[in-house]
């Protein structure tokens, strides 16, 4: 599985489509344990990101990710803005000088993204944040074996659903303490959409 510039753009587009059609659901998830703006934030950010990358010309996947990072960083705000911004920025930096992106390259990029996010958010796995989705996905990609679209969705979905039973210790949901249990983390859900969109890109490429 190699990622082309075109696929990178499509990834952003497909993520945006999923975010837009689930905007209200993301907001509802955030209303339960946060401040109810996650759907609005993601929709504002990815709308602009799609507009940017689909109207620009790119030589490299890294270039697509760099613009995506810049837009997300300056349009989302909140907690998710710097995190998604950092994720795409780290990926673009890792892939900077790569004319083509192999699966190993991409796995490395996601690993870098994860590290950047953990550092930026001072969060670890198990704290009921989007890290809980990025971590197993990064591990899965790094593993290298049987990496396919179906598996990717499976891993991401399971991780997202796993956030339901944990108590938040990072992010806004942490203020609720025990009351945060029983609710899926909104940022994990938007991260799931991101990887679902990626899986769709892969499927089309098959």
């Amino acid at each position: 599985m190699v990622m082309t510039v075109e696929q990178a753009v499509t990834w952003v587009e497909k993520t945006n489509a999923l975010v837009q059609s689930n905007k209200e659901y993301l907001t509802e998830l955030d209303q339960a344990i946060g401040d109810g703006d996650h759907g609005l934030n993601m929709s504002r950010g990815f709308q602009e990101a799609e507009a940017k990358v689909s109207s620009s010309e790119y030589e490299t996947v890294g270039g697509v990710f760099k613009d995506t990072a810049t837009v997300l960083m300056s349009k989302i705000g909140g907690a998710s803005g710097p995190l998604y911004g950092t994720a795409f920025l780290k990926m673009s930096m890792f892939l900077r000088d790569k004319p083509s992106v192999t699966q190993a390259d991409f796995a490395g990029a996601v690993e870098e993204a994860l590290n950047g996010m953990k550092q930026r958010g001072k969060a670890e796995q198990g704290e009921k944040t989007m890290i809980d989705v990025w971590h197993p996905v990064a591990d899965f990609l790094k593993n290298g074996q049987n990496v396919n679209a179906g598996k990717l969705v499976e891993v991401a979905e399971k991780a997202m659903e796993g956030t339901k039973d944990t108590v938040a210790t990072k992010g806004r949901a942490a203020y609720l303490q025990e009351r945060s249990k029983g609710h899926i983390d909104p940022g994990s859900t938007s991260s799931f959409y991101l990887f679902q969109a990626l899986a769709d890109v892969w499927k089309e490429g098959e």
Binding site: D37, M73, I76, G78, G81
Partner: peptide, 12 residues
């Protein structure tokens, strides 16, 4: 100023 209940972005 950020959006409603949303921290402003670093560029601002």
């Amino acid at each position: 100023a950020g959006e409603m209940f949303t921290s402003p972005t670093p560029d601002q």
